[in-house]
Amino acid sequence: MSWLSIQVAQKHYNAKADADRAAPEASTAVLKDVTLNVEYGEFVCILGASGCGKTTLLNLVAGLDKNFEGHIALRAANERREPRIGYVFQSPALLPWRSVGENLRLVMRPDQIGTGIERELLAEMGLEGSYDAFPGDLSLGMSRRVALARALVIEPDLLLMDEPFVSLDESKASELRRLLMRFWKARPMTVLFVTHDSREAIQLGQRIIVMAGSPATIQRDEMVMLTPQQRKDPLYIESVRRQILSNSGPQL
């Protein structure tokens, strides 16, 4: 059995929040027969159009939503402890009433508190001056950096990322992508990176999963073996992109 095995036979949204208004049968299937096996240390990009169910899939893996048919198993990376999951949400989701430093300290393990690791990490990400700032005073780019730092500070075995660099300009986004790659290379962890941007997926991923349809299924599962130089070359990326998307149907 692989390290992370995802088997979602079926996932419905039965509009539970509006239970008294919507009829009970008004439930829409979001995911169907999504089977995905990931080995420890892989960098997997999940590519699909907005609203196709990628976030739903991440929430299932994170355990935020347990209401689905199928099962998801995560093996321990280390026998002595539970696997740790870091989640970078689509919005930075920093607690605005806590300072940047406190936002990081809140997710840290008791044995990490007092080691100053959060300060070091923020400094490594160019945020040393923002330790005591409140998130409301940060730019979006900085907030996204803090959100990434918060996910990394717990030293995750599995890092879930939901369009983490969306609505940033290209130079900031690529800077953050480089930062992410640096951390992924420095410390082994599995990354599930959700995006609707195929160029971003090819730049980052070793493996690209294309999701589409309603309910969404896995359309393609491609290994992308590129050298670091190739990843930086827009023309090369463009050709790989055409190759991958040539017969996958939807525009991505």
Partner: peptide, 21 residues
């Protein structure tokens, strides 16, 4: 909702969630 998701995925527990979220 997003802060509740945060608290749940980072396993804040009841007391921490109440106090900080």
């Amino acid at each position: 909702r997003q802060y509740m998701d945060l608290a749940q995925s980072y396993r804040f527990g009841a007391w921490k969630t109440l106090r900080h979220v």
